[in-house]
Amino acid sequence: MKKSIRFKIVFVALVVFLAYTIMLNLVSGSISLSYKDIIDVILGNRIFTELEYNILFKIRIPRIISAILFGIALSISGFLLQTFFKNPIVGPFVLGISSGARLFVGLFILSNISIGFIESPLITIFLAAAVGSLLSMLLVLLFARKVDNISILVVVGMMIGYIASAGTDFMIAFANEHEIAALVSWSMGSFSGIGWNVLRLSAVIIIPTVVLVFFLSKPLEAYLLGENYAKSMGIDIKSFRLVLIILSSILSACVTAFAGPISFVGIAVPHIARLSIKTSNPKILVPALVLLGASFCLLADYFARTLFSPTELSISTVTSVMGAPIVIWLMVSRRKKV
C-alpha cells in the first residue's frame, strides 16, 4: 500500500513539474510575457498583440512541443536500450547510435545539396537517420556478442560514435561554406527553428511508438529476469529483441533527424525516474518517463536559451552538464557492487 501512495505522489509531482516547465518556457525570452498576460487572454480580458501572437505560435509553442516530443523519445529510447542490455549506463548517445544517425543525415544533406535538390523531404531525412542508427546498433550488437564486459561495450560504443563523427567532419571539410553552416548548427542539437510540419511528422512517429512500448509492459517486465527466464515464461525472445532494437532506433533516429544528436537524456531521465519512483515496473515507469523526459528537456532548453542570453547554448551543452555526472556516478557505483 505504501508503494501505491508513493506512485501517486511522484506522479502528481511530475505533472506539476511538467506544467511548470511549460509555463516557464512560455513566458521567458527576449520579449517578456507575464503569466498574467497569458491568463488574461485565456479569460478573454484582452487579446494578443500581433508580435505576442507570432512569438508564441511561431517560436515558443513549437519549441515547447519539440522539447516535449524529443524528450519523451530520447527517454523511452534509452529505457529500451537499458532493458535490452540489462544495464543502466547505456543510451542512444553513449552507444554511438545518435552519431551513426548523424553521419547518415549529414551524408544525405550534403550529397543532396550538391546534386541540386534544395528542399529535402522530411521523411527521407528521417529514413536516413533510421538507417544510420540501425546500422550502428547492429555494429554495437556485433561487439556485444564478443565482449561480456559492459564497460568495454560502452567504450566500443563511444569509438563507433567517434568514427561516425569523423566521417561527418570529413564531409564538412569538403563542403562549401553555406552547407557547413546548416550542418554545423544542426549537428549541435537544438530545438529552435523546428516548424509545425516537422512536429506533425515527429508526433506521428513518436506517439504511436511510445504507446506501443507501453503495450509491451508485460514482456518488458519479464525480460528483467534475463532471457532464459523470459523464454521459459512464454516470450518469443528472438522477435522481442528485434522489436526492442527497432523501436529504440526509430525513436532516437527521429530525434537525431530533426533536432540533431542530444546527449545523455536517454540515460539521465530513466535513472532519475527509477530513483524517484523506486520501481522497475514498465507499466508505471513508462508513463513516468514520458512526463519526466518532457520536463527534463524543457528545463534543459530553458537553460540553453536563458543562461547566457542573448547567446543561446546548444541543448547538448546543457544536457551533458546535467547528464554526464549521473553516468559517471552510475559506473562508479556499479563497479563497487561487483
Binding site: K86, P88, L224, L225, G226, N228, Y229, S232, M233, G234, R274, K278, T279, S280, N281
Partner: peptide, 18 residues
C-alpha cells in the same frame, strides 16, 4: 511450454528495483 514447465537456473539475475 510455459504452462507445462517452470525453471530455476544457476545464472544470477539482476532485476533492477524489483
Amino acid at each position: 511450454r510455459a504452462k507445462y514447465m517452470s525453471i530455476v537456473l544457476t545464472e544470477r539475475i539482476d532485476p533492477a528495483m524489483m
